[in-house]
Design a protein around this nucleic acid. Structure first.
Lengths: 342, 342
DNA sequence: TCATGGTCCGAAAAGGTTTTCCTCAACGTA
DNA sequence: TACGTTGAGGAAAACCTTTTCGGACCATGA
């Protein structure tokens, strides 16, 4: 069994010329009729539309893009697609552009600079209207270049070049948000277990947490931030270390949902109940983890869809005129669940 | 602070004509020189290349696509991007096409048929060379149409139309693989806890498991397959139900890694050690779950990257000639970890 | 009858590339 | 010298659409 792709009789898709011929008008008139331009009588317009319908005419976007200034394609250059951060951003961007108006050309550099450069070249040769660059981790990454013929927005990971426009999540206020929530549900002895201290995000969240604690006249339980790695197993080890040092805690702010899972596990093993004895809040709001957790895990959401959406908006705005530069921080959002219930 | 996108002096990208003028040759010669065609002297070729370099010339892929039969773009129409199944397929496909040769235009229909139709229209108007359709769940989905001007490959979710070409994972043999592994590490009283029985994948994995058990003259522990939902919490409830009925089990085959997590949790709570008392194997090999688990979870990998890669290959092959039809099943792969260690 | 104005439509150019076919020059051979 | 051959390079068409500009036609008023 085999089958050839369906094609029109002449072996090609219908062109505007075919439509015009069938409608008995010129190409110019057909174009004007289909695009709703003026200087076409209603009767003619109807005839043309019918002809287009009959031939299932679909304008060749390549030819349109060649003639017009815009192509309606933006490039999304990501460094880590399997990472869970690119996807929400991608979806937000796709959303903001609107179906049918702009398409997204996706390239994954897999963290390889050479591959990234080649992808960039390809995207430019396809005459994308703009680029969104999504880094693998939320730390400054090399700029893809300042002298590009199209506007570029960096999302999640800012560019090292301050002249570029970058959109990032405000991890400091995210850390504050988490601690403020814990305080609001009555907790006072709050510990912080986070991930790799080499990540700016880890430092920022910790800084926000400490600042918020200070505002309430509180000190960090456990005496220090437990930095380690972004893994469940680190959440477990760190919790064991923490409990070995002090059992005087009533809340843990975990630097990620994965860490939080490890924390909850170990608290349970130690005979502590969540949230009765110890409240736990995570970060990322990765639903598969936070909802799968028992009890469901409160978390801080980085609003990555919004990040993508705003990136798309900035890009659209930049098509017409100027592109701002600098780093724009977008707020996080608290998602309370049972693990911090009062 | 604001900045305009960099542009060339005349406000546009360099064209072949610019290169030709700078090199002092005709457009035709410049084209031939850059594309490595014959009938160009070495000297001229060098001059042209230098000119192109100086102008940082990049051929306009739109114009190339307009002239050529192929555009070098394939469309990827997915129904559920946030689901974790589209991404590996996408990456496999991107990989197989090779960087720079073919680009992937990504559209997410969000499970909405109307949105899907609009995306399809857009993709066709952009004259993609082919389409890969990735469904949201591994059950037959409506065909996007038989009379399309480009070849289409369905991946993960097969098309309902047997004339279409579909690539799916072989869940039956995946189920066999899991049980065979458990038998090989010496287990005999094997239970199966799976997800939503409305999923063909759940039925197939169960069928494979039962067939493999039968081959070894074994019966299913617990007396039946525990179907439920694809969640951690179902893994927990089902394990409680299973243990309430019999503690005569030494292995559990879970229908997904998430379920397996719930199973392991509950086994631990019941005082059973994994893998000493009960071995556990999952499905999907979702590393964030299987590696985060304690102990690390053995699993069956559906080889989704391979699925994507094969989809790309089939598409490439179809460009030249004919596209096969029917459903092609690709084998799964066992990934043993500690949770089934002997 | 002529001028004027308005409405509708069509010819043609532009956008950038590739390829075919043609010209032209140089060179070798009879 | 005349002719054939070879190799380099160029003109132009084709891919498809949009837009500008001008032409044709009709009606109206002077």
């Amino acid at each position: 069994m085999a089958r050839r792709p369906a094609q029109r009789a002449n072996g090609r898709a219908a062109t505007l010329e075919d439509v015009a011929r069938l409608a008995g008008v010129s190409i110019a008139t057909a174009s004007k009729a289909l695009n709703g331009r003026t200087h076409v009588s209603e009767a003619t317009r109807t005839v043309v539309h019918e002809a287009a319908e009959r031939l299932s005419y679909s304008p060749n976007a390549l030819a349109q893009g060649l003639r017009a200034v815009r192509t309606g394609i933006v490039g999304l250059l990501t460094s880590d697609l399997e990472g869970r951060f690119s996807i929400p951003i991608l979806m937000g961007a796709e959303d903001a552009f609107g179906v049918g108006r702009t398409s997204v050309l996706l390239c994954d550099a897999r963290g390889d600079a050479i591959r990234e450069a080649r992808h960039l070249e390809t995207l430019l040769s396809r005459r994308v209207d703009g680029l969104i660059v999504v880094g693998a981790r939320p730390d400054p990454r090399p700029s893809i270049g300042r002298e590009l013929p199209v506007p570029v927005v960096y999302a999640y990971a800012p560019s090292q070049d301050p002249e570029d426009l970058s959109l990032v999540s405000d991890n400091v206020s995210g850390g504050k948000l988490a601690v403020r929530h814990l305080v609001e549900v009555g907790r006072r002895r709050i510990a912080h277990i986070s991930g790799d201290p080499g990540y700016g995000a880890a430092q920022d969240r910790a800084a926000g947490a400490l600042a918020e604690l200070a505002e309430h006249g509180l000190e960090l339980a456990g005496g220090r931030v437990y930095f380690g790695s972004w893994s469940e197993s680190w959440g477990r080890s760190a919790t064991r270390m923490l409990l070995a040092q002090t059992r005087e805690i009533d809340a843990v702010f975990a630097g990620s949902d994965q860490i939080a899972r490890g924390v909850i596990d170990t608290l349970h093993e130690a005979g502590l109940e969540v949230p009765r004895d110890v409240a736990v809040i995570g970060f990322d709001n990765w639903e598969i983890f936070s909802n799968g957790s028992r009890p469901p895990l409160s978390s801080v959401d980085m609003n990555l869809e919004t990040l993508g959406r705003v990136a798309a908006q900035r890009l659209s705005a930049a098509l017409g005129g100027e592109l701002a530069s600098g780093v724009e921080s977008l707020p996080c959002r608290l998602v309370p669940r049972e693990s911090t219930a009062a």
